[in-house]
Design a protein around this nucleic acid. Structure first.
Length: 517
RNA sequence: GCGGGUAUAGCUCAACGGUUUAGAGUGUCUGGCUUCCACCCAGAAGAUGUGAGUUCGAUUCUCACUACCUGCUCCA
């Protein structure tokens, strides 16, 4: 555990030290669980997005893209269930430090009363035998009636309290003498509402009318555009809509660096299928998405599927792809069979028909949805945590020295090639190096560096994951060749200046990577 | 949100309540040297999270705030 902590701390400080990730608003002491991407971070993140987008949209003729707004009509979130389900009233026990949903505590208490009633009924049934009239017993037995009355009164008061009086829910819990199931303590905090959506307002005058939410997931933008996209792109089911975009969640606890942020980026694809065929595509996407991770270099032993035990209200199957982060296996991507829940909901709340006419079946239906949803920032953290390694390499005297190297897949590395004159104080070398730099900078992200000894410059590039370095030496002046040095093997090869772009392009090319999928 | 821990240069760490002008390594910058993996030499810049309190005096003790780590909790 301590070793994991250190490894994680090293990763966080590496991200800061080399300009990948900074804490948001750091000069003002930071803002909790919000982070900014620095110069290398934004390059890496963009490359990850490109890999995802091309593998999903470019590679699949039946998947098209979308960029829906962050603001959406408030009814969207009523339809999706977020307004209701993302509104948990929570209460803490001060002694046991356990947290509960206040309504669940009361409901459990009500369940106990119900159990008492049922016990009474069962007893009577045993006593009276076949002639027992349960309905009559329930409506006349004084003890049953009393308990039933109590049960109903509590239920009513809970419902009222939940609507607009959380203080009364606490009062109810105290009056009923509900104790912490774990510790038996009755020392409760106030009931607090945690709304997981951020709200803001439309227009310059505040009020209920203009209340808007920042989207907590990108998926709904896809669902409400289903018909627009399907008709204009002339897609036939099965087909998918992909989107990359920011989402916002007011998490109760946001921790672990960029793993759980309040503002984050999702890469989602909703695949629309015929009802009844969802499991076939669910399995298909499970396999494809896992392969996507392996192809970019995430090792099989750091990836695993994790089936959901409790399915969300909209799903009939759900699995996570978990990654072995420095703090353990955690969700990186989710693949969910969302049924027709979302489209049906939007159909009901909007009053518009959201259906697809299937020319083969000759009937209209609300399509079923299989979703793949990956956190872009989590993917960033996954590749960084796996890439950051320390190894032992020979130094100038042939002795062993350790180096910090970011073994990113070349296709997503922020800088593809560093151009280095062997010596700084020889103008013919620096001039030539500048010339080489200006020649290849059009092809990919390059960096020119003449400061410090050549070995140090190699190490600097290692630390930001640059896969290739070309070095201009005195031979270059004679024959227009350079040495190209490989980050991982340290091997050096002599190639012509005219071949640099071609050689490196072959190794960093996104299309080569995609063709392995 | 509750409990525990932490906060000193970009990074990693020092400094008895006062010998201090808060040190060191590393990194950064400038110059020199250097013909391929953290060389060397000379110089420079750079820090006590914020705000109160105790004290003659606070980086050091107390409290609050903020942020981070961590257990609980939550996770569409």
């Amino acid at each position: 555990m301590a070793q994991q902590d250190n490894q994680f701390k090293r990763l966080v400080s590496h991200c800061k030290e080399y300009g990948f990730i900074f804490q948001s608003s750091e000069v003002y002491d930071g803002l909790s669980a919000v982070y900014d991407y620095g110069p290398y971070g934004v390059l890496l993140k963009n490359n990850i997005k490109e890999y995802w987008w091309k593998s999903m949209v470019q590679m699949h003729e039946n998947i098209v893209g979308l960029d829906a707004s962050i603001f959406m009509h408030p009814k969207t979130w009523k339809a999706s269930g977020h307004v209701d389900a993302f509104n948990d009233p929570l209460i803490d026990n001060k002694d046991s430090k356990k947290r509960y949903r206040a309504d669940v505590l009361v409901e459990d208490y009500m369940a106990k009363i119900e159990a008492k009633i049922n016990k009474e009924v069962a007893k009577a049934k045993k006593r009276f035998g076949d002639s027992f009239d349960e309905a009559q017993f329930r409506s006349t037995n004084p003890r049953v009636l009393k308990n039933q009355e109590k049960h109903d009164a509590i239920g009513k008061r809970l419902a009222n309290g939940m609507r607009d009086n959380l203080a009364d829910v606490k009062a109810l819990i105290e009056e009923l003498g509900i104790a912490c199931p774990e510790s038996g303590s009755k020392n409760w905090t106030d009931v607090r509402q945690f709304n997981l959506m951020f709200s803001t307002q439309l227009g310059t005058i505040a009020g209920e009318e203009g209340k808007l939410y920042l989207r907590p997931e990108t998926a709904q933008g896809i669902f409400v555009n289903f018909l627009n996209v399907q008709k204009t792109s002339r897609q036939k089911i099965p087909f998918g809509i992909a989107q990359i975009g920011k989402a916002f969640r007011n998490e109760i606890v946001a921790r672990q660096f960029i793993f759980r942020m309040r503002e984050f980026e999702q890469m989602e694809m909703q695949f629309f299928v015929r009802p009844g065929e969802e499991m076939k595509y669910y399995e298909q996407w499970k396999a494809f998405r896992l392969k996507w991770h392996k192809t970019i270099g995430s090792p099989a032993e750091k990836l695993r599927f994790h089936d959901h035990d409790n399915l969300a209200h909209y799903a009939n199957a759900a699995v996570d792809i978990q990654f072995d982060f420095p703090f353990g296996f955690k969700e990186l991507e989710g693949i969910h069979s969302r049924t027709d829940f979302d489209l049906t909901q939007h159909q009901e709340l909007s009053g518009r028909k959201i259906q697809y006419y299937d020319p083969e079946l000759k009937e209209s239906y609300v399509p079923y949805v299989v979703e793949t949803s990956i956190g872009c920032d989590r993917m960033f953290l996954a590749v960084m945590s796996h890439a950051l390694t320390e190894d032992v390499v020979p130094d100038a005297n042939g002795k062993e020295s350790t180096r910090l190297v970011l073994r990113l897949h070349p296709a997503i590395a922020p800088i593809k090639c560093a151009v280095l004159p062997l010596l700084k104080n020889k103008e013919e070398l620096t001039d030539k190096a500048r010339e080489v730099f200006n020649k290849i900078k059009f092809a990919f992200d390059c960096q020119y560096d003449e400061k410090d000894a050549i070995g140090r410059r190699y190490r600097r590039q290692d630390a930001i994951g640059t896969p290739y370095c070309v070095t201009i030496d005195f031979d270059t002046l004679e024959d227009n060749t350079v040495t190209i040095r490989d980050r991982d093997s340290l091997a050096q090869e002599r190639i012509a200046i005219d071949d640099i772009v071609k050689t490196i392009s072959g190794k960093i090319d996104m299309s080569t990577l995609l063709s392995q999928l």
